[in-house]
Design a protein around this nucleic acid. Sequence first.
DNA 1: TGCTGTGAAACTCTTCACAGCG
DNA 2: CGCTGTGAAGAGTTTCACAGCA
Lengths: 231, 231
Amino acid sequence: MISRPPRPRERGIPEATVARLPVYLRALQSLQDRGTLTVSSEDLASAAGVNSAKLRKDLSHLGSYGTRGVGYEVQYLVYQISRELGLTQDWAVAIVGIGNLGRALANYGGFGTRGFRIAALLDADPEMVGQSVASLDVRHIDNLEDVVRSKGVSIGVITTPAASAQGVATRFVEAGVSSILNFAPVVLNVPDGVDVRKVDLSIELQILAFHAQRRADGDGRAAERAGLELT
Amino acid sequence: MISRPPRPRERGIPEATVARLPVYLRALQSLQDRGTLTVSSEDLASAAGVNSAKLRKDLSHLGSYGTRGVGYEVQYLVYQISRELGLTQDWAVAIVGIGNLGRALANYGGFGTRGFRIAALLDADPEMVGQSVASLDVRHIDNLEDVVRSKGVSIGVITTPAASAQGVATRFVEAGVSSILNFAPVVLNVPDGVDVRKVDLSIELQILAFHAQRRADGDGRAAERAGLELT
DNA sequence: TGCTGTGAAACTCTTCACAGCG
DNA sequence: CGCTGTGAAGAGTTTCACAGCA
């Protein structure tokens, strides 16, 4: 168990775990900035807003990186998680649709604290083309294929209006991009093997409204029970 | 067990279902716009990007709103889902942090096609205060409590830098807001009974990078297996 | 002794497959 | 006959509780 190199790990980290690794990473980086050297699962879990058993099980999927009786070495764990997430290489990202949201993303400095590089900004509006946003010239969307090839773009971000999103996605896919982050409120159709993640602002609000309404409904009948919810 | 009205349903719709209702709603509204009167679970499911058994089970939590042999009446289902999500009332939303992202949200017209009203924009920067964004005057954050009270804000949106987010959240909570949508990359600490949802752009990118890396790793060893993944 | 790593139990969510209604 | 609604099986996730190493 000693002379092995860092160990790429067996393959097969649960999705739920993958989704939390970035949160742990952020918490660890903040500890690192504060000069903390080691951290227990209890403390790291509370910084990340999860319970400690979950955190330990999550980390156990990466390997045995903790020390019993002590905790985890912050620096080392930052490196292991970064590597696992693929942040030790850097990914070229193209953003299509330079409205307020596209601009917000382009300017979002610490893009996950390294690992990502905005390689191009594209828009369909001639007014927009040529403008400089976050030190990049906005180019016309007709250049999408060129840009993907020449800059080695592997992640496409779509911040266009809903009506244009599917077209852009298709062009990304045909140009060879197989990771897409979609902010447009539509379901994208892509071939197998292409990974689409969706961020939808209005869906999040609707989920909040659902819970808010439920709380309000309960208040009518159970106002004085003041939040006891044992069943 | 028979003479009951349409039935508000027992209470207890699974979280996973709640998260998909907005997607169904959007698909239904788009069918409605096209003048479609009824839709089968198969067709609606494919418009929403899920499988039909899941869709039927999800809808069954709301009640028996379909007709066997026919499908679902679009109009009626739109209404039922809207009601369940609490979109038949309208929710006053305050946005704190009027940078690019805050502006993008403020201008995001069809905020879930009704149900939400942007009631106030707040910022800490004196330069920003007084400017008009999306037909609203940006006010100074010192007015947060006033605004929450006077406009009846029940959902707070945080688009500030990370360092300010916790402070804003605390003020929201103390002012009586118990639903928060957080875009700042920090874990917020709030008392029980307050519902926080997080949208994190860089986390989404990191998850994409993880999968992209995995695909790339596999390619080295299994390029010619061309995507067969039976194990 | 103090903490990690992990079986096993509990729970949640998805998918299958079909009974039964319109 | 076609499609919904749903039991039951299966997969994935969380939590518990503790064995065992530093």
